[in-house]
């Protein structure tokens, strides 16, 4: 009797989790644009019906450096930026393994800054556990979806998915001295946990016949010479394709006095446009990604691109204003 009561208690709790998961997950995905915070891009990818040829993962360096709709405008490549602030490899694994069940990209671009992210064994173990739970019970990931009941008109304006995960920022926070110096706070090594996840991600891409390309967005604040040396060795060891954009800043035409909004940590719109053009050319030429802009299935993408172009035009105007008063950090356009 005693055992039965205890089993009943835990069985009831398990049933509640399963029921909530079954209720929340489909509702959230059917209204993916209302999913907020760091799950937004994740839900955005899952809610996109068309297949995307390129998926981008990483932390803030990724979603401020590559604009999917610019890739579409310039090369007709359907892409989505799934990067989120402070992303860790456990999150990338969870996100990638879930979205690959319905998306079949040809190339996955992975920004490398998150390879160095480590919060200590306790915090990272908590995060790994949470990600495994979310993988098993995805409804829990969107548990605060009920908040959309309280949506205001302003929130509704943000629903439009014109950015496809990209963060468009028109501010300028120039960097006076772009010389890279060693910074002991920026450790040039990977935690064992991150190595383990990287190997799993490489295997996952191979399994799904996807070309995994690592790239380092230009960022003097994050990429110290030691880190860049480490990455060169790592990609050699793993046999991975790698684009180090920090080594080709001149070729891209980056000007650190106007292409960053926070003093060389992240790119603003102007910087991201230059990087996206370079990456788009590389994807089209070296990975032979087809131009799908005239395909009927992707008609919505052209409409999204039109909206995007309008936003970019406005943001460029702001950026020019900021350029005149260079050195001040402007407001981001995107939420």
């Amino acid at each position: 009797m005693k055992k039965l009561r205890i089993i009943g208690l835990f069985a009831g709790m398990a049933a509640i989790v399963l029921i909530l998961n079954m209720l929340i997950d489909p509702v959230a995905l059917s209204r993916a644009k209302r999913v907020n915070n760091r799950n937004r891009n994740y839900a955005g990818i899952l809610a996109t019906e068309e297949n995307m040829d390129v998926l981008i993962f990483g932390d803030s360096e990724s979603y401020t450096s590559v604009s999917p709709l610019q890739l579409w405008q310039e090369h007709g490549i359907p892409a989505y930026n799934g990067g989120v602030q402070g992303q860790c490899l456990a999150e990338t694994w969870s996100e990638m393994s879930t979205v690959l069940k319905q998306q079949h990209p040809k190339v996955i671009l992975m920004e490398t800054c998150m390879l160095f992210r480590y919060h200590g064994i306790e915090k990272d173990s908590q995060m790994v556990l949470a990600e495994h739970l979310y993988e098993a019970l995805p409804g829990l990931r969107y548990h605060s979806f009920w908040k959309s009941i309280f949506y205001t008109d302003q929130d509704k304006k943000k629903e439009n998915d014109w950015q496809k995960g990209f963060h468009l920022v028109s501010g300028i926070g120039g960097l006076e001295d772009a010389n890279r110096e060693e910074d002991t706070k920026k450790e040039a090594k990977m935690a064992k946990l991150n190595r383990w996840y990287l190997d799993r991600l490489i295997a996952l891409c191979k399994e799904n016949d996807i070309q995994l390309v690592l790239y380092s967005a230009p960022s003097p604040r994050n990429y110290t010479p030691a880190r860049l040396d480490f990455l060169d060795m790592l990609v050699q060891e793993k046999g991975l394709d790698y684009i180090n954009m920090n080594a080709i800043e001149e070729e891209i035409g980056l000007d650190w006095s106007v292409d960053s909004y926070d003093g060389g940590d992240h790119l603003n719109l102007s910087g991201a446009q230059k990087v996206t053009t370079y990456i788009g050319d590389k994807l089209a030429q070296e990975y032979q990604l087809p131009d799908r802009s005239s395909e009927e299935e992707y008609r919505q993408w052209n409409q999204d691109a039109e909206e995007y172009a309008k936003r970019v035009k406005k943001a460029r105007k702001k950026w020019k204003k900021n350029k005149k008063a260079a050195g001040t950090i402007g407001e981001g356009v995107n939420p």
Binding site: L9, M13, L20, R38, N39, Y134, R141, H143, W146
Partner: peptide, 20 residues
């Protein structure tokens, strides 16, 4: 039992954890 189930459901749905 009723309290456990209601509290458990409330913590899962309304708890300030995860994204955001």
């Amino acid at each position: 039992y009723a309290y456990v189930f209601v509290l458990f459901g409330a913590v899962i749905v309304l708890g300030a954890y995860g994204a955001g």
